[in-house]
């Protein structure tokens, strides 16, 4: 008998709901910003109003059920992101999930947002081989996680200041490229010279798996300011983009490979919005295969925040009977592998 799980994700900007069967078959995966759900409210919704989860949540859940061609009665469980994230945003999803669980007498599953990103890979490759290393890179996170068994995570390192995706966005803004910065820099970098501008790479103390991108961001800004001060010296934006992207990817790839070697992992997984970066994929794929490892990464839609990954992570919790009580609350600074319910 198959297990049908409704997943709900509202930890940051996106309101998302998904129906996933047996942790692998995505029946639907509705993400507010990617759907013309706005018209249901008759009017243009500003960029960050996708945070107005309360207005969106019911319509997004309904849409997820409709697209999956099922109804509430067909669900076996309901899963929700309960941290980390913005408390006000998380609460909308948590309250919705609890209401559904209580109203339909369904088991409730609480999922860590970062755990969800890791499991986006399981929707692509359900047997990645353990131990596996996962690099999670997005606007809000840069984490290197070792997984020896599912449900248990070791955080090997994370950013000490800016996340990788944030650095991409801020440098894109300084270059006048617009938003979202990651894909725009990626595209522009393809026609630039990666060696044109010497930029720093912060490796921190020897053997550290932590990251730091704030200094790199400031170095790019300083470079541009210096060029402007010298009397409007021409700035080759493609060269800046290429040099910057290379600096970020070098550090991400070097530290990931170092960790893979140290912990003798079978494979490497990528997750989060920056996992869509072409250079990061290329460089990690190549270096992983040189060492007989495989690089697993989800398609772009599963890299950004979405509820399918939450429903997938929840499926494995369901199998372990790791259910959350109806007293489940939002935990804004929830740590990976430290469930609290």
């Amino acid at each position: 008998m198959s297990i049908v799980i409704l997943g709900i994700e509202t930890s940051c900007d996106e309101t998302s709901a998904a129906v996933v069967v047996d942790g692998v078959t995505i029946k639907s995966n509705v993400i507010s910003s990617q759907v013309d759900i706005h018209r249901k409210f008759g009017g243009v919704v500003p960029e960050i109003a996708s945070r107005k989860h309360l207005e969106m949540i019911n319509a997004v859940i309904r849409e997820a059920l409709d697209r999956a061609e099922i109804d509430f009665k067909d669900l076996d469980a309901v899963a929700v992101t309960y941290g980390p994230g913005l408390v006000g945003a998380l609460l909308v999803g948590v309250a919705a999930a609890k209401a559904i669980a209580y109203g339909l007498d369904l088991p409730l599953l609480g999922v860590n947002h970062i755990e969800g990103h890791i499991f986006a890979n399981m929707l692509v490759e359900s047997e990645p081989g353990l131990p596996v290393l996962c690099l999670i890179v997005s606007g809000g996170h840069t984490d290197l996680v070792l997984i020896r068994e599912f449900g248990r995570y070791e955080l090997l390192g994370s950013t000490r200041d800016d996340a990788a995706g944030e650095a991409f966005d801020k440098v894109a803004r300084v270059l006048g490229l617009g938003y979202p910065g990651g894909p725009l820099i990626d595209k522009l970098a393809a026609c630039g010279n990666k060696d044109a501008i010497p930029l720093p790479r912060a490796y921190l103390e020897e053997g550290s798996f932590d990251f730091s991108f704030s200094g790199l961001k400031t170095a790019v800004i300083n470079y541009i300011h210096r060029a402007v001060q010298k009397g409007g010296e021409h700035i080759n934006k493609a060269d800046v983009a290429a040099s910057f992207r290379q600096a970020i990817v070098d550090v991400l790839a070097d530290k990931t490979m170092l960790a893979a070697r140290r912990y003798a992992t079978k494979n490497i997984m990528l997750a989060g919005g920056v996992a869509a970066n072409t250079l990061l994929r290329e460089q990690l794929s190549r270096r992983a295969s040189e060492e007989g490892l495989r690089l697993i990464y989800p398609p772009p839609v599963l890299c950004t925040d979405n509820a399918a990954m939450i429903a997938c992570a929840a499926y494995y919790k369901y199998l372990r009977q790791d259910f959350a009580p109806l007293t489940l609350n939002a935990v804004p600074n929830l740590r990976l592998g430290r469930d609290c319910y």
């Binding site: 940051c12 980390p84 994230g85 913005l86 408390v87 997005s138 606007g139 809000g140 994370s158 950013t159 000490r160 200041d161 800016d162 996340a163 995706g165 944030e166 966005d169 801020k170 704030s214 804004p332 600074n333």
Partner: peptide
């Protein structure tokens, strides 16, 4: 005691 990181994307970090 926690590590303080940029709140740009998360909007609010609580410590």
């Amino acid at each position: 005691r926690d590590r303080v990181t940029s709140p740009t994307f998360t909007l609010i970090n609580e410590y």
